[in-house]
Design a protein around this nucleic acid. Structure first.
Lengths: 212, 212
DNA sequence: GTCTATATACGGATAGAC
DNA sequence: GTCTATCCGTATATAGAC
């Protein structure tokens, strides 16, 4: 899959429909998109959707699975890497995520909304390579806490903070950009700033936890 | 409006339908809810929805406006209060928001999703009392920056961090709780912990910005 | 494989009885 | 005010021509 997920003019009909479906589904969500929208976006006829994918829901499931992959892909690789420090992991995660989200700004709202609407349906599909327990980054965190002889605060707080500061701005972006009359370009450049800032902030948070 | 937004058994039919609509709309979103769902939730017949509210969309607009109010209410009051310090404002904002979100956990996804689906429709309705510029909290921020003789980082970063760390966990909650096999109660008590932690973290972030 | 035309189901809305 | 029954537009899905 292309990281920017742009339309490939040389793709097969099936691929073009999938790509059109991705665009429309991620923009409007499952319930609000009509198969006609997808047909129109793809440039093909409505009947072809069923010819290739049998039903709107089956097509959606394929798209959703792929987008979930995009959303979590390579986290596992970064987070379990035994050769990088905690600091390097944080840098990589934030940088990777912000790049991915600038390329796919609608992804977080889409995923959170659909998972919320249908938790049982998709959550089982995510797991496997993103198990939160026993990842190497947490071992490193505990070691750091021990070095500081500090009470181990729930490390989930740390992960929450990291993901929150990275992902949430994209979720709030429609609201934020309008309220502050910010352009997409200005918003993106703020996010690029945050690639450097968030790791610094996370470390400051870690320190404050040990200090108190 | 009741802050916990619970069903009032003594309410009028119209109120009961509104309450049912709020529950279903905020859980499934506009597109995915059927007027039949609202009727069922309310205990009344489907026809009464149109009798009282003329159409699904008019009912939705009423709900959406009210929920936007809930979401931003009293921010303005806290943020522009000339008698409180920056630190106090942060404490109040986080504490108020976490209480509100524990009572209405589905609200952020709902609002972000609907605003995203229809930016032009609702954004104009939010503004007025939440204008981001010229609020007192930002003046205090600039003063603090000057006292530290520090380069003024875009204060939007600070607000982003505050709101992100407070609101995003509720957005990710369906996904997070399932992946970590956390109960709602456990999640909520983590959020209660964060009422104390987030202000500390925000101050640590502020300091790190000035130090670098 | 791709189209047009159509069957079928579903959801929003209303008529009319009580 | 509240219900049952029903209308009608719209959306998914399929049949069948090319």
């Amino acid at each position: 899959m292309k990281s920017a997920q742009q339309t490939d003019l040389n793709a097969s009909t099936e691929e073009k429909i999938k790509e059109a479906a991705r665009i429309v589904f991620t923009r409007k969500g499952y319930a609000a998109t009509r198969t006609r929208d997808i047909a129109e976006e793809s440039g093909y006829n409505l009947a072809l959707i069923n010819y290739y994918f049998r039903s709107k829901e089956k097509l959606f499931d394929i798209i959703m699975l792929e987008q979930l992959q995009v959303f979590v892909q390579s986290i596992s690789g970064i987070v379990n890497d035994q050769t990088t420090t905690l600091q390097e992991k944080i840098n990589l995660l934030v940088s990777h995520y912000i790049d991915m989200l600038i390329a796919n700004p609608g992804l977080p709202i889409f995923i959170m909304n659909e998972v919320n609407a249908n938790p049982e349906k998709f959550i089982s599909k995510i797991g496997i390579d993103v198990g939160i327990k026993d990842v190497f980054i947490l071992k490193q965190w505990h070691e750091m806490a021990e070095r500081h002889n500090a009470p181990t605060i729930n490390p989930l707080h740390l992960i929450m903070n990291l993901v929150s500061m990275t992902v949430f701005p994209f979720i709030a972006s429609p609201l934020l950009r309008n309220k502050t009359e910010m352009s997409v370009e200005e918003f993106n450049s703020m996010m690029m700033e945050r690639k450097k800032l968030i790791p610094i902030w996370i470390m400051a948070i870690v320190q404050s936890t040990f200090d108190s």
